[in-house]
Every structure is written in C-alpha cells, then in structure tokens.
Design a protein around this nucleic acid. Structure first.
Length: 510
RNA sequence: GGCGCAUUCGUCUAGCGGCCUAGGACGCGUCCCUCUCAAGGACGAGAUCAGGGGUUCGAAUCCCCUAUGCGCUACCA
C-alpha cells in the first residue's frame, strides 16, 4: 500500500540507448531541481540519515524543486522489519514531505536486470561465476601479500566455450562491471570541488547479485537517471563510490547529475554513527520529548550555517536561505547538550495553550497512577505553565509536576531541616505557615505571599529558610516553581494536609 | 596496506588575502535578579587557526610536505 507510482509520462530527447526504458518525468519539462532521499531499510533512521533527508528536502524546497523518497531495499538479508515505516514516520514528524514515491527498489527488479543485461550485451559488463570461497581465498592471499584487495577479473576474459560450460553448470552468476584498466575519473563535487580517482584503483564491482537483486551501485544509478535526479546529495561515505557511478553513467551514455557529498555526523567518539551511540533512531528523540521544530533547526545547523551568529531560525527562514554553498566540509559530532538547549528555547517561546497540548501525551503516559485518568484538562492548564520555562524536553514535565497529582508525598525527613534550620525551627516555621494557610479568605496569590513573608520576618527566618521548609512540605522536594503560585494551584486542603504530614514527620502529633 | 576526504575554542560554527590582538552559540565559571530551581541580564575563562615549509608588502584564508582523524576498499548500503 505504500507503493504509489506517481503519474509519469515518458519524455523525448534523452540519450538512453534503444531497447531500454526511457527516462521519465512528471511533465515535458520538469523542475530544474529534482533530489531524492534514498535510505536503505537496514535499520531505524538515525540523525545522520535524517540530516541527509533534511538537506535534500531543504534544497528542493528552496529551489522549488521535487523531493523524492526512494527505499533502497536491495539487501534481503539485512532488511529490518518496520524500518520503512520508521523512516517515513521520522520524515513526517519533521515535516519533510515527499512529492514522489516512496518507490521500492525491490519492486523494480526487472528494470535493473534489463540494464545489467544491456551492459553485458554491449561489452561493459560480464557474468562472473566465481564462488564465494574462491573470492574469499583470493582476498586472503592479497592481504597476505600486502596487495590492495579486489576482484582479480578471473571471469572477465573467459572464452565462449568456458562461458557456456559455466552457464550450463547451473551456478547462478553475478554481473560485474568492466572497469577500464587505465585512465582517471574526475568529477566536480559541489561541496569538495574537483575529485579524481585512478581507474586502476577500482575493481570490477558486482552490479547484479546472483539472487537477481541489484547492488547499490546499479540500482542507484539506474533510478537516479530514470527519475531524472538533478543533484545527488548524499553522505560523504559515498564519495569514493562516485567514480564507479560515473563509469556507469558513461557506459549507458547518460548525462551525469551533480554531486554533493555531505559531511558525516559522528558519534562522541568521532566514529560513524551507529547503534552504540545511544538514541540513534529519530523516533527515540520524539519519545524523549524533543519537538520537531527544534530538531529541524538543530539538524539544519549540523553542517550548514546562515552566518556568523543566527542560530534560532524558523523553517521558512531556513528554506529561504539554504544553499549548498554554505554547507561545511567537515564532519560534525552530534552535540546533545546543544540540542537540549535549543529544544528548551523552542519550548519557552511556545504559547501556553500549544505547550499544554504538546505535553499532554507525556503526562498521560508518565504521570503516576495516582493521577486519575483521563487527566483534568482545566487543572492541567493551571499546572503546566508553571514549568514551561523549566523543562528542556517534554518528557521532563511529568516528573517536574508529579507532586501536583500524587496523594502522599514520599521524601526524606532530613529535607525539612538544614544547616540553618534544625527540627525545632522547622516545626516553628511550619506551624506559622499552617496558621496562614488556614483561613480560606487568605487564598489568593498576593495575600498569601504577603502574609508568609511577614511571618518569616516576624519569626526572624530568612525567606530562603522559611519558604524552603514549606516547599519541601508542600512539594516533597527542594526545587520547584515559585511556591505561592504552586500552593494556589494545589489548593488549601491539599496544602494544609501536606504541612500537617510534614509536622508529623518531625514528631509533632497534635 | 591502497585510494579518497578532512583538519579554527571541549562541542557546533563564522572566516573565502589586509576589517582577526580570530566573531557567535552550546557547555563551563563569577556576579546581578531571586523563596528554591529555572529563565533572563552582565562579565569571564577557553583556539600560538594540526605542524613545517613556501607565495605575498601582508595568510586562518593560496601552494607543497608531514602528521592525525575519518570514510571506502563485500554477491552491505
């Protein structure tokens, strides 16, 4: 159901050889910018993958072009169940909408097979029957002799008789590309400039596997051409594959797209991002209470910048100013602390209504069972604004506010006392507070604040000490939003109850 | 090992020959505000621009070498 072929019509004028499917385009003249995000569903999408998607999307939106989603599911063995769904969910979460696709390469096998056969028929590729064992032994030997590993081209020059024999053996061959033995592949990368590779360092790579599936190289090149991709924007790890791809474009007689290899995103240990680096999947960030606006902004700044100072930018502003020219060349380490800060900054600038709506799912899920479900929306609306500027992620909010919902507070009695406040003084302070909290007519913020401050002065307590014990008694903790507003939300009954409970902890029974 | 790419504060980055005694942000420290925690404000520490050679009147910026890091080197992507 996820495969929705766009309405494509063939166009003329391409230099595709006869007998092959012709390139397609949405209209006679497609937009100049056509880019794609082409993940392989071998795992859940991490921030590096998503950053690549984001840059492609930004480039498309900036240039009023087309953003295509293509799933490169050509590795049957490594395919992970649910990965495609996770990829799409991640894109949707960040608001990266695609204009065409998702295309599934596994449903286009005949296309790649045709192209591979065309290359064989036209002497650009050949069948190879070498067994995995032979290849393995060959590699070991090469490593042992300190030679660069690579296919020894054993099947490249088989006689017709030998080919016929092997074909008759029933062993399913792979198709290998016939890499020129000499010469150089030079191409211009939009980010790195001119890059050159000697063909002699390239071996005859496999394009079509024996199971009939294409390798990345074949499927990627064929699809990029067929889908009329104008700019191939992908992670830096693909840079050294680009000469192979150019060779294929040349063999097919196709026009080369532009290339832009993005700097990698590294883990804290400076290595390629992987499962070992904690929350790698983008969906985990969502669960941890990061909001898409912040993630979008943060990711955009990982390898791209607007100028020397602007950090917080709207999605529109980023689209407007996004250019390849301003993408940096150097790999970046994913800095969680800065994301936390940025997420907090986005959370703080949100309207309280919007904020409450975003927090609600986290409250429903993480608040203790003592909070009756469904949660009281009106009560929540009073509680949540008290922590809006205090949380860096939405996931922190339940634990910051749980004392608003619990019945009995659980805390160490020692919290009620301090260096400047022994048990006797704590009792004195709490008793005086209880007297203030008693009369219902005292229950508004200004009055309570005024009276409590007066009590602190009268009993010769610092505000810090006086409000401190009261805070522990009422919230069960030493840090909280401003006490008086907290108490007003909590209500008279609850507060008195808790002050009494604190006094009991201190040995006061009356 | 071979090939390729990269190299500015701990981290993200600005810088594309003189505006740089290198700017911003996160984090960190101090102070202010303050009932605590945050938020906010002020100030500060932190980079001999990987090292060495050139080119130039002048280099973080251009060239070369070295070092280091990363990537690729699969019938993985």
């Amino acid at each position: 159901m996820i495969f929705q072929p766009p309405r494509l019509v063939p166009i003329g004028g391409m230099r595709t050889p006869e007998g092959l499917p012709q390139a397609e385009a949405r209209l006679e003249l497609g937009p100049a910018v056509r880019v794609r995000f082409a993940p392989s569903p071998t795992g859940y999408p991490h921030v590096g993958n998503i950053r690549t998607a984001l840059f492609n999307w930004l480039f498309a939106r900036h240039g009023r072009g087309v953003f295509i989603l293509r799933i490169e599911d050509t590795d049957v063995a490594r395919k992970v169940e649910g990965a495609v769904e996770a990829i799409m969910a991640g894109l949707k979460w960040l608001g990266l909408d695609w204009d065409e696709g998702p295309f599934l390469q596994s449903q286009r096998l005949d296309i790649y097979e045709k192209h591979a056969r065309w290359l064989v028929d036209n002497n650009h590729a050949y069948y190879c029957w070498c067994s995995p064992q032979r290849l393995e032994a060959m590699r070991e030997e090469q490593v042992r002799r300190k030679q660069p590993p690579g296919y020894d081209r054993h099947c490249r020059d088989l006689s017709d008789k030998e080919k016929a024999e092997r074909a008759a053996s029933g062993v399913r061959p792979v198709v290998r590309f016939k890499t020129p033995l000499e010469g150089q592949m030079v191409f211009t990368d939009l980010i790195r400039g001119e890059v050159a590779f000697d063909n002699s360092t390239l071996d005859d790579f496999v394009m079509l596997k024996s199971d009939g599936y294409p390798t990345y190289h074949l499927a990627n090149v064929v699809d990029d051409h067929l889908m009329r991709i104008s700019h191939v924007m992908r992670a830096d790890e693909w840079l050294s594959s680009t000469p192979r791809h150019k060779l294929m474009y040349q063999a097919f007689g196709w026009e080369l797209p532009q290339f832009a290899h993005l700097p990698m995103i590294l883990g804290p240990d400076r290595s390629k991002l992987s499962k070992r680096h904690g929350a790698t999947s983008i969906t985990e960030y969502q669960e941890q209470g990061y909001i898409p606006e912040a993630m979008f902004n943060f990711l955009a700044l990982l390898g791209w910048s607007l100028d020397d100072k602007t950090e917080l930018m709207s999605r529109e502003q980023i689209i407007e100013s996004f250019t390849i020219e301003r993408i940096s060349k150097t790999a970046a380490i994913f800095n969680r602390e800065k994301l936390d800060w940025m997420n907090g900054a986005y959370l703080r600038q949100m309207s309280s209504g919007e904020y409450a709506a975003r927090v609600l799912p986290f409250m429903e899920k993480h608040l203790p069972a003592s909070a009756a479900r469904p949660l009281d929306a009106a009560y929540l609306a009073k509680v949540i604004p008290l922590v809006q500027e205090r949380a860096r992620t939405l996931a922190e909010v339940p634990s910051l506010t749980d004392f608003f919902f619990g019945g009995d507070l659980v805390y160490e009695t020692a919290l009620l006392t301090s260096r400047t406040m022994d048990a006797a003084k704590a009792v004195e302070a709490l008793k005086s507070a209880a007297a203030v909290l008693g009369p219902p007519e005292n229950w508004n913020e200004t009055k309570l604040e005024e009276l409590l401050r007066a009590e602190a002065v009268r009993l010769n307590f610092s505000n810090r000490d006086y409000f401190g014990v009261l805070r522990v008694a009422v919230t069960g903790r030493t840090a909280s939003p401003p006490l008086v507003p907290v108490m007003v939300v909590l209500g008279r009954e609850q507060c008195l109850e808790r002050v009494k409970s604190a006094l009991r902890k201190l040995g006061v029974t009356a």
